[in-house]
């Protein structure tokens, strides 16, 4: 599946990571001491039942949610000590996002949507649009550069979202249920695209999913329950079978 090596310096390193919501009697412990390492070039899937803490975990790893306690080193930065403004800037450069509902801006064309991360990084508009067009070509949407999201199918929208996540070459991609809104065939195509275009020796992917059909694309699968990782398994036919059963 990949040339993954789980030795060396991890891209993501979480130790005893905790996240609480609310306070007092109403406090909910979403993460209750997560330990997780993700290595360069790895496609890690996070699976588990609804409400187990998967999305909270990727929100903390992506720097869009503060952890309550523990350590979280991502790409060499300790996110718990990074100031909010610096974290926003860091996120813009280092993280690519793929969302369940695509989250494309409906009034922007495909190229303009893809160009946003480059504009955030202060690239001139014409240059940003040129690079966005190139990225759309790589995801097979060269003919739909000027299309609005409403003019695209679900699979095409997700491909635009993937192009947007990759256009600024981030070392870490965070994908939240990237196939849940797609049919099996399209979901498979999207995962193939992610595997083909997104993964490289320098880029890691974290994919949160319920969709057992895409488990074969993972290098490792982490099972989360009740805010804790119960086990992490290397991908293998047995694991896939087990995961299918768990999911």
């Amino acid at each position: 599946m990949s040339l993954l090596s789980t030795s060396g310096t991890p891209v993501v390193s979480c130790r005893q990571l905790r996240k609480n919501f609310g306070s007092g009697e109403n406090q909910v412990q979403a993460l209750r001491g997560i330990n997780l390492d993700i290595y360069p070039g790895e496609l890690m899937m996070l699976v588990g039942p609804s409400g187990c803490g998967k999305t909270t975990l990727i929100s903390v790893i992506a720097g869009i949610l503060d952890a309550s306690a523990g350590e979280c080193q991502v790409l060499g930065e300790n996110l718990l000590t990074l100031a909010s403004a610096a974290r926003t800037q860091w996120r813009g450069k280092q993280i690519g996002f793929v969302f369940q509902a695509y989250n494309l801006l409906p009034t922007l064309t495909a190229a303009e949507n893809v160009a946003i991360p480059l504009l955030v990084q202060k690239l001139p508009r014409s240059q940003a649009l040129k690079q966005a067009a190139e990225m759309l070509q790589r995801v097979g949407l060269a003919e739909r550069i000027q299309a609005l999201p409403a003019q695209l199918s679900g699979g095409q929208q997700q491909r635009v979202a993937i192009a947007r996540a990759l256009v600024h070459q981030p070392p870490l991609l965070v994908c939240d249920e990237p196939t849940s809104a797609l049919d099996h065939h399209t979901g498979h195509q999207v995962m193939e695209l992610l595997r083909r275009v997104a993964t490289s020796a320098n880029r890691s992917l974290i994919v949160v999913t319920h969709d057992a059909r895409i488990f074969p694309f993972a290098d490792r699968i982490a099972h989360i329950e009740d805010g804790l990782i119960t086990h992490i398994a290397e991908n293998s036919p047995a694991l896939i079978k087990e995961s299918l059963h768990v999911a």
């Binding site: 801006l105 922007l108 303009e112 946003i116 480059l118 504009l119 955030v120 990084q121 202060k122 690239l123 001139p124 508009r125 240059q127 690079q131 256009v167 600024h168 070459q169």
Partner: peptide, 25 residues
């Protein structure tokens, strides 16, 4: 990696924010 050379003769931050504001907002 991407080329992030700012536009000539202008504050890149200002230009960039204007671009985002006009193009998206």
């Amino acid at each position: 990696m991407i080329n992030t050379t700012p536009m000539d003769g202008a504050s890149p931050l200002f230009k960039s924010e204007i671009v985002i504001v006009y193009a998206i907002a």
